[in-house]
Design a binder for these strands. Structure first.
Lengths: 215, 215
DNA sequence: ACCTGAACACCGTTCAAGT
DNA sequence: ACCTGAACACCGTTCAAGT
């Protein structure tokens, strides 16, 4: 076989998709804070300056990675039940998708504008709430509340260090002076009990119950 | 008058309190991301290495600043009404305190352990929920949910750039293709309507209604 | 004993220069 | 036209050396 006359060896052509995918993979591995433009550029085999051809700055790149994290979320279908069952399923899938990518949800709370995949989920949340007969203004605010819930819960449920954090919290609670913190002390076993999914389902139920109570 | 024989000129003695206060002031001014150990050390007139005598690392310093941000929150008293009114007041005060310090709430979501002032608020939230006759397990999970709500809302309501962000969101929503995002398009005016406080009060009401519905 | 200068191994971003 | 080396102005953290 003839020697291949490539100039760039194994190097894949640079593209926005490749850069964003590499970014998300690094977030999975190292967490958002440790993902630098330089590390991303290494992962796609260039220098840091080359990334700026595709992306205006680090924040925009992280926002793209956030949107990619949520790209695979499937919207519930008719066979998934009534509007409420479908809403709970959609929210749960969104939390799971984000939690699977370490602390990528922090990007959303940092004030990035939502990308197309996030918007697709927001659109469906709003549509389901309306199907449920919630008033328009309440839909708008409820979608906001649900968005907050998704981001917070994704952070709480993320795979890396969830149980480790719970254990540190538990130790803290038990070490607290009984005099100043009697209730925390009394409820300490409950405060860190249950896995993320169970707590999440409970919280989401509370949230929707509250919505319906006010309607 | 005699020449003062000071060696260190105007320099205040270094102390943990001074360092934490300087850190929070810089967060107010620049935002968490831009607050570096070097800038803090400048503000207290030393070199960066000196901070490590008082604090193990940047994360711990930010956690102390977070706790300081919430140190001034007054607990509601008997004259503030029943448990629910008092809970709503306490949560509102906590959100306001955090929102007054730029994006300091991000530190909480980044997984810092709660400091004594945060714990004092958690203790009172739990106590009030119990007073309301909520079951112990529900109290524990509800306190968690309320904590998430406080941090998220503080970020949403922070003074810097709240209205600017709402305007950017509004522009985005209106620019969306009607075909793919009909509901967002239809509700666009409502999605960014209302000031932070109004939305916050509404959300908190929903949350507690939901708690009571499930009890 | 307490403090810190200087160094190490990093950052994000820009821009002149190269192909 | 597209890409990037090299530089600029920063980082967090450590530790040997000073007082």
């Amino acid at each position: 076989m003839p020697a291949r006359p490539r100039t760039r060896s194994e190097k894949t052509t640079l593209s926005l998709d490749a850069i964003v995918a590499a970014t998300l993979a690094l977030v999975d591995e190292l967490g958002c804070e440790a993902v630098s433009m330089r590390r991303v550029s290494q992962a796609v085999q260039t220098g840091p300056a080359s990334l700026y051809v595709y992306v205006p700055d680090r924040g925009a790149l992280m926002a793209l990675a956030l949107d990619l994290a949520v790209a695979g979320v499937r919207l519930p279908t008719d066979s998934d039940g009534d509007w409420r069952a479908r809403l709970e399923l959609l929210v749960d899938r969104s939390v799971t998708a984000l939690a699977a990518h370490n602390d990528i949800a922090t990007v959303g709370m940092a004030g990035a504008l939502p990308g197309p995949h996030s918007l697709r989920i927001t659109e469906e949340v709003l549509r389901l709430l309306r199907t449920g007969g919630i008033g328009d203004a309440a839909c708008a605010w409820a979608a906001d509340l649900i968005g907050q819930y998704i981001a917070s819960s994704a952070l709480e449920e993320r795979e890396k260090a969830e149980e480790a954090f719970a254990a540190r919290l538990d130790t803290l609670y038990r070490s607290l002076p009984t005099g100043r913190y009697p209730t925390i002390h009394a409820l300490a076993p409950l405060l860190t009990s249950g896995d993320g999914a169970t707590r999440g389902a409970w919280k989401l139920r509370v949230l929707i119950d509250g919505l319906l109570a006010g309607a």
